[in-house]
């Protein structure tokens, strides 16, 4: 009997198979646009996400801050201001009250800073061994404003790709902690993107935004190239790399383009407004390392290429399953 493997949850090609299996059982053509959140009639934006991170607390954040930032970011990249949150808590018997309180405090702090209201929730306690400590699910609800139609379908050749911060910092931090590496200066980028992305919304040439979470920047770009049927070319030397994350990836043999970020967005904007978008992003602390990293092309539709620091060119692909450390 074929069973699920951990790779089905890693955001790459296996995840696509899993998602197709689920969607195929529902009437109509559910979540057809495959964006980060759904925008319902009246500009109501909705998203839901489960959080199962190990370890529960990491440099730069914890599962509490992550569960609010992650879902709020999924709304923010479609130009929707996060307003409400619903929270599901599944906690394992024997879990310390103190830890739960600490994580809920972090979640509450992010809500307070963003003006998000917790409106409903659920708690379940399961017997020991049936959950890995604590699983959180958040459903975030928001409202679109100036730019209701942001999405992949707007992407066209000539557009410019802007990255708001170094990619892969969250993934590298988690990988380092799982495999017992200590790296100075390494920290998750876990942050709510709304305050920065909000400043970009007045730009008419703003086409599409995506937070580079599971599967990393590489996956976001591949999905754009495939669904908008365009080519994308980026330049390795223009990506604002984080040194500590790169060392972790080098040591473990992981691809930084496939590592998740939790406070990093890729933005597609018309060439006329690229500089304006860059300046707006840079004006916000979260975007101080923002950079224009490439552009959308008519050639080689469906593919993403990277011009490497060596001057060569290669394809960028999505990760297949869980990124595993290499042997030597």
């Amino acid at each position: 009997m074929e069973t699920l493997s951990i790779g089905h949850g890693a955001g790459g090609r296996l995840t696509e198979e899993l998602v197709s299996l689920i969607l195929g059982r529902f009437p109509g053509n559910p979540v057809a646009d495959r964006e980060d959140c759904a925008v319902l009639p009246g500009g109501i934006a909705v998203t839901i996400d489960g959080y199962t991170v190990t370890p529960l607390a990491f440099e730069g954040g914890d599962i509490g801050s992550l569960c609010i930032c992650g879902s709020a970011n999924d709304l923010s990249v479609r130009g929707a201001k996060p307003l409400y949150i619903a929270l599901g808590v599944i906690v394992e018997e024997g879990f310390p009250f103190e830890d739960l309180a600490r994580f809920m405090t972090s979640a509450g702090e992010v809500c307070r800073a963003l003006g998000i209201e917790l409106v409903t929730g659920d708690t379940k306690v399961v017997p020991r061994g049936q959950a890995d400590g604590l699983f959180l699910t958040t459903c975030a609800i928001g409202k679109t404003g100036a730019h209701p139609g942001l999405g992949t379908r707007n992407i066209s050749p000539g557009d410019v790709i802007l990255l708001t911060s170094p990619p892969g910092m969250h993934g590298a931090t988690i990988a380092a902690s799982r495999y017992g590496l200590k790296v100075n200066g390494l920290s998750s980028d876990c942050a709510a993107l709304w305050p920065m992305l909000e400043t970009l919304l007045p730009l008419e040439g703003l086409k599409c935004m995506r937070d580079c979470t599971r599967g990393g920047l590489g996956t976001v770009l591949c999905e754009w190239a495939e669904s908008a049927k365009v080519g994308i070319e980026i330049d390795e030397t223009l990506i604002p790399w984080d040194e500590a994350s790169i060392s972790v990836c080098d040591l473990l043999g992981l691809d930084p383009l496939h590592m998740a970020g939790e406070g990093c967005a890729a933005v597609v904007v018309s060439p006329e407004e690229a500089e304006a978008a860059l300046e707006l992003a840079k004006n916000h602390p979260l975007g101080k390392r923002a950079s224009i990293i490439g552009s959308v092309t008519e050639e080689h539709p469906g593919y993403v290429g990277i011009h490497t620091a060596s001057g060569g060119t290669r394809l960028v692909d999505k990760p297949v399953g869980e990124e595993l450390p290499r042997i030597c």
Binding site: D255, I306, T308, A309, S310, G311, G312, T313, R314
Partner: peptide, 12 residues
């Protein structure tokens, strides 16, 4: 092998 591919050296 991986380094050669990742750096795009084959194209050079």
């Amino acid at each position: 092998t991986v380094s050669i591919f990742r750096q795009g050296l084959r194209s050079l």
